[in-house]
Simulated scan of single mutants.
Amino acid sequence: MAETAFLDTAEGRRIAYHKTEGTGPTVVFLGGLKSDMEGTKAIHLEAWAKARGQAFLRFDYSGHGESSGQFEEGCIGDWHEDTLAAVGALTTGQIVPVGSSMGGWQALLLARALPERIAGLVTIAAAPDFTEDGYWANFSDEQKADLERLGRVELPSDYMEPYIVTKRMVENGRENLVLRSELALPFPVRCLQGTADTAVSTETALRLMDHATCDDMRLTLVKDADHRFSDPTCLALIEQAVEDVLDG
């Protein structure tokens, strides 16, 4: 297996990545919150890209996986900067972001920042604006007070160990919301969502569909699929979605 390479960013972070050379557009996998580039979906897509001869990039945001930093110190804006740095330094020409969960939010931020470079976009259980609509909107008065007083709240998860939500993450999230203002996606978009997902609801997927301006946007709902979306059937659907925007 190829050794991990590292990119030093202008913000002083060290981003771990694996890049597969091939024909463009480059497929860029954007992982979820507290996930990393060694996850099932990222590794599966890399193997698919190699077999197809497609350029592919996977990387770890700061505070994730092999990259520098601590998770609790990061926020949506930091990980957007990491994404811009990785795409800017490690790819050329057109790209197809594939964003999973929080990576779906990152893919939308990337599309807003670099629309001219996006050939198509795929989301998997995308979680745009989750710091506001998932965290803040559901915090109790006590949790909101703790966030203000202590600067952090600890939350349980169905999919990982409990994690820390910081005041900075919530406040920075508000500066990067994508469902409150125009969201133009002038390229093919394919959205995948499981109906048994307890982290991101089908309502979120439908809200994104309704909000975005896009001439070629499709949502596939998969009955009983959960947030991991990584069984063989789901992985095949991801391949299909990426091929659809690449070949269509």
Rank of each mutant, 00 (worst) to 15 (best):
M1C: 12
M1S: 15
T4R: 12
T4I: 15
A5D: 13
A5V: 05
A5F: 07
F6M: 04
D8S: 15
T9F: 09
A10S: 14
G12P: 15
R13T: 02
R14S: 12
R14G: 05
A16D: 08
H18P: 00
H18S: 02
K19P: 00
T20K: 01
G22A: 07
T23E: 14
P25S: 03
P25C: 01
V28P: 08
V28D: 04
L30Q: 05
G32Y: 05
G32Q: 04
D36S: 06
D36G: 03
E38P: 01
K41H: 09
E46W: 02
E46Y: 00
A47Y: 07
Q54M: 03
A55E: 03
D60I: 06
Y61C: 08
S67Y: 05
Q70P: 00
E72S: 09
E73D: 14
E73V: 01
G74F: 05
C75M: 09
C75Y: 13
I76G: 12
D78H: 15
E81G: 11
E81Q: 14
D82L: 05
T83H: 07
L84K: 14
V87T: 03
G88D: 09
L90D: 00
L90Q: 02
T91G: 01
G93R: 07
Q94Y: 01
I95G: 00
V96D: 01
V96R: 00
V96P: 01
P97R: 00
V98D: 01
V98K: 05
S100Y: 08
G103F: 06
A107W: 06
L108Y: 10
L108A: 10
L110Y: 08
A113E: 11
A113S: 15
P115A: 03
A119V: 00
G120I: 06
L121A: 02
T123C: 10
P128I: 13
T131H: 13
T131W: 12
E132W: 02
Y135C: 05
W136K: 02
A137I: 13
A137F: 11
N138Y: 10
N138R: 11
S140K: 12
Q143M: 09
Q143R: 06
A145D: 00
A145H: 02
E148V: 00
V153G: 12
E154G: 00
E154Y: 03
L155E: 08
L155Y: 01
P156Y: 08
P156F: 04
S157D: 08
D158A: 14
Y159F: 14
M160R: 07
Y163W: 09
N172C: 07
G173H: 09
E175N: 15
L177P: 07
V178E: 11
S181L: 09
A184I: 12
F187I: 02
F187S: 08
R190G: 11
C191Q: 14
T195S: 14
D197C: 14
D197S: 14
V200E: 04
T202I: 08
T204G: 02
L206K: 13
L208A: 01
M209I: 06
D210E: 10
H211S: 12
T213K: 14
M217S: 04
L219N: 08
L219F: 10
T220L: 09
L221D: 06
V222M: 15
V222I: 15
K223F: 10
D224K: 05
H227S: 10
F229T: 12
L235C: 13
A236H: 06
E239T: 15
Q240D: 14
A241Y: 11
V242H: 07
E243A: 13
